[in-house]
Amino acid sequence: MLLADDESMIRAGVRSILARSPDMEVVAEASNGYEALELARRHQPDVALLDIQMPQLDGLSAAAQMCRDMPEIGVIMLTTFGEDEFITRALQEGASGFLLKADDPRELLNGVQAVAAGGAYLSPNVAARIITGLRAGGLMANDPPTLRALDHLTERERDVLAHLGRGLSNAEIGRRLHLVEGTVKAHVSAILGKLGVRNRVEAAIAAYEAGIIRRD
């Protein structure tokens, strides 16, 4: 994975946490957004972990360009700042995950594993902020076509969406629902199209808003 943060102590701390998992390796480190983009092109990591506040080019701008030019890389924002505007913009730019530096270290491991497997991940603190915002009329709450489209999902698509909303990858969803991964991928594409959303995170938000997330 690629790690980008302008504070060397933060990078060292993140490396220490990731070292707990034998299947995670930091292949490159960057201290600003421009360097992160250059290293991403060079190393093609599965996951890029980007801080928001970085010099020269901030993490959100780097994430937007990375998601556009290198969509095969899963982008996670790791930041001290949990303001709604940062969360909203990160998701709009195509990030697959959002974690706070104050989160439990296990959330970092869970998030990287989920995004590396093709899923999406929001730390509990971020998910709670999003749900609160939805209830108050925030993100996506004023998008009636998206909510109405939930009624057009098939029963199987709703099952897939429920698991997708918990951040599971296609392979994990397939194991839960006894489907081959290609079939899950087709269902996910259909769900995104019917809901009119751009990525799995926005679909997960719709699932939370609709109350169909399974707690099993």
Rank of each mutant, 00 (worst) to 15 (best):
L2K: 05
Q44R: 15
T132W: 10
A95E: 05
G174A: 10
A30D: 03
R15I: 11
L3G: 14
D6T: 11
A186M: 05
A186I: 00
D84R: 02
L161I: 08
S96W: 03
H178M: 13
V27D: 04
I17S: 00
L2H: 09
P144G: 11
R156L: 15
G174P: 09
A102S: 15
V201K: 00
I191F: 05
R156W: 12
L3C: 08
E209P: 06
Q92L: 14
R215G: 02
E172W: 08
G133Q: 04
L168H: 06
E155C: 07
H43R: 07
K194M: 05
A62M: 02
A90V: 06
G82C: 03
R156S: 14
V112K: 04
K101I: 02
M140Y: 15
V160I: 12
G118W: 09
L164N: 14
L168T: 11
G111E: 04
I205P: 06
L50F: 01
I212M: 08
G182S: 13
K101D: 02
H187K: 00
G138T: 10
R106S: 15
E181S: 05
T154V: 02
L39T: 01
P145E: 10
I173N: 10
N125Y: 11
A48N: 01
L57E: 03
L177H: 01
G94C: 04
A102W: 08
L150V: 15
L139M: 14
Y121W: 03
G193F: 15
F98Q: 02
V184Y: 04
R106A: 13
E72M: 08
V197D: 03
E93C: 11
F81C: 06
K194F: 05
R148W: 10
D159G: 01
A4Y: 03
E202R: 02
A40S: 13
E107N: 00
E181V: 14
E155R: 15
L91V: 15
A162H: 09
R68G: 03
E83H: 15
E38W: 04
G138L: 04
H163W: 14
V126F: 04
E85H: 15
A207V: 03
C67I: 08
E85M: 14
A12R: 14
S169W: 00
L134I: 15
A171V: 11
Q113A: 13
S16W: 12
V115T: 06
I130M: 13
L192W: 08
A186D: 10
F86C: 12
G182D: 10
V184M: 05
S21E: 14
V26L: 02
G182Q: 02
K185G: 01
Y208N: 08
G82S: 10
Y121R: 06
L150F: 09
P45W: 12
L91E: 07
R175C: 05
R198D: 03
E107S: 06
G174W: 00
E7N: 12
E25R: 10
L139H: 04
A36Y: 03
L177S: 01
M77G: 10
R11I: 08
